[in-house]
Amino acid sequence: MSSSDSAASRPANPRVALFVTCLVDLFRPSVGFAAVKLLEGAGCRVAVPALQTCCGQPAFNSGDRETARAIARQVIDAFAGYDYVVVPSGSCGGMLHEHYSALFADDADLAARAGDFGKRCHELISFLVDVMGVSAVAARYAGTATYHDSCSGLRELSVKAQPRRLLASVAGLKLTELPGAEVCCGFGGTFCVKYPEISDRMVADKTRDIVATGADTLLAGDMGCLLNIAGKLRRDGHRVRVRHVAEVLAGALDEPAIGEPATEHAQARHTGV
């Protein structure tokens, strides 16, 4: 879809429901607030439906179709009546956008509802750029960042140029490309639980590439990848700061980076690094 198509048909101040995602809710609410700030800055009226928990991927990808369907129906009901549903995650975004309608293939009414719902769902950064027409942000970041393309966002939702475009407008930020940016980090949802050793080896390859760029910051658009990458960097003693891309775009840097100790963060803030 081209940005002009969707921009032409959208209301000037659309009503946007934020799908927070379970990982942002539990681990990193600052990403949710950064998303709200970015959306409101783009002219959206943001609401957070209360009856949301998770998109259902853990069940869907474990073969538990019935549970996935039950959760999908719950989500579709909770998010009825908004112009858009926006998610700060390509993985959950892909689930809502791509997979819900497939879950109801045997029920024409539900499939139609899920299809309509899916069309209204967007990953945060691509929504800002492609639908709201945002081309720059008023944020500042002192440092060199590299960017990891999370798999579902990249391949299911074509999130690739949008985050780079907005990051290019962040004052003080230098973006250096990550070799193998499109290679999976090994998180894989339940995969990292079922095959932790393989997952660990994959994220070791990823962090080796990240460290080799010399960047001081690693950004991505998915909490799963970010927890995985930050956890590996921390364990191996690398001080690369790991943040969700929305935090940098919103200038929401008060909280320590992912996995960063509070003292280290305070020290870094103090010295202005």
Binding site: D200, G231, R234, R235
Partner: peptide, 27 residues
């Protein structure tokens, strides 16, 4: 900032830390 060991996350923390939640949920 992160856990080196965490109950029920033994596989994960074998080779990586588990970053700490910020303390309050978004909701």
């Amino acid at each position: 900032g992160s856990f080196r060991n965490l109950p029920l996350a033994g596989g994960w923390t074998l080779g990586r830390d588990m970053p700490t939640p910020q303390g309050e949920t978004f909701h």
